[in-house]
Amino acid sequence: FGNGKATLDNGYGMFLSMLEYKLSERNKYLVKVDKWFPSSQICHCCGKIHPEMKNLTIRTMKCDCGLVISRDQNAAINILREGLRILNESFAVA
């Protein structure tokens, strides 16, 4: 008891390390998006923030711009865009 979370975290960290290693062998990248990035709260069309989407029982985002989309699909689009932004930013610095 008590160290189950630590063991789980360690296992996940090891998995990420192996994944990053395997991707680098194939000249690919692992991009980590901040876990607090509000992916499900941002309309991927207009960028408006919807704080009410913090409520996990709301499964559909309805934005003033006319977008009606599943919260998960909207979040996936936002995570992809954020990952690409981070990747492009890292290449711009190098």
Rank of each mutant, 00 (worst) to 15 (best):
Met14Val: 10
Phe91Ala: 05
Ile77Gln: 03
Pro38Leu: 03
Val33His: 05
Asn27Ser: 12
Asp72Lys: 08
Met53Ser: 01
Glu89His: 12
Leu19Ile: 02
Lys35Asp: 10
Phe37Glu: 06
Leu84Asn: 13
Cys65Ala: 04
Lys35Phe: 09
Gly2Cys: 02
Gly83Glu: 05
Cys63Tyr: 06
Asn3Gly: 07
Ile58Ala: 04
Leu8Ala: 13
Gln73Asp: 13
Ile77His: 03
Tyr29Met: 09
Thr57Ile: 03
Arg81Leu: 09
Met61Gln: 11
Thr57Leu: 04
Gly47Tyr: 07
Glu25His: 08
Leu16Ser: 08
Lys32Val: 02
Ser90Met: 13
Asp9Arg: 15
Ser70Leu: 09
Cys63Ser: 02
Lys5Ser: 06
Ile69Leu: 13
Trp36Gly: 00
Met18Gly: 03
Ser17Arg: 15
Gln73Ala: 11
Gly13Glu: 05
Glu82Thr: 03
Ser90Val: 12
His50Ile: 06
Gly83Lys: 07
Lys54Asn: 01
Pro38Trp: 07
Met53Gln: 06
Phe15Asn: 04
Cys65Asn: 06
Phe37His: 06
Thr7Lys: 15
Ser70Pro: 03
Ser40Thr: 11
Val33Gln: 05
Leu16Asn: 10
Tyr29Asn: 13
Ser90Ala: 14
Asp72Met: 04
Thr57Arg: 10
Glu20Ser: 15
Glu52Trp: 00
Asp34Glu: 09
Val33Glu: 04
Thr60Cys: 05
Leu23Pro: 11
Lys35Met: 02
Ser40Gly: 04
Gly11Pro: 00
Gly2Tyr: 09
Arg59Glu: 11
Ile79Ala: 07
Cys65Val: 08
Met61Arg: 05
Asn3Phe: 12
Thr7Pro: 00
Ser39Gly: 03
Tyr12Met: 12
Ser90Leu: 10
Asn27Lys: 15
Pro38Gly: 04
Thr7Arg: 15
Glu20Arg: 15
Leu16Gly: 10
Ser40His: 05
Gly66Pro: 09
Val31Asn: 14
Leu80Lys: 15
His50Phe: 08
Tyr12His: 14
His44Ala: 02
Asp72Pro: 08
Ser39Leu: 02
Ile86Arg: 11
Met61Asp: 02
Arg85Ile: 01
Leu56Asn: 06
Glu82Asn: 07
Lys48Met: 05
Lys32Asn: 04
Cys43Asp: 05
Thr57Pro: 00
Asn3Pro: 00
Phe37Cys: 01
Lys54Ala: 11
Ala94Gln: 10
Lys48His: 03
Glu82Gln: 14
Phe15Lys: 07
Leu80Met: 10
Lys5Thr: 15
Glu20Cys: 13
Lys5Trp: 11
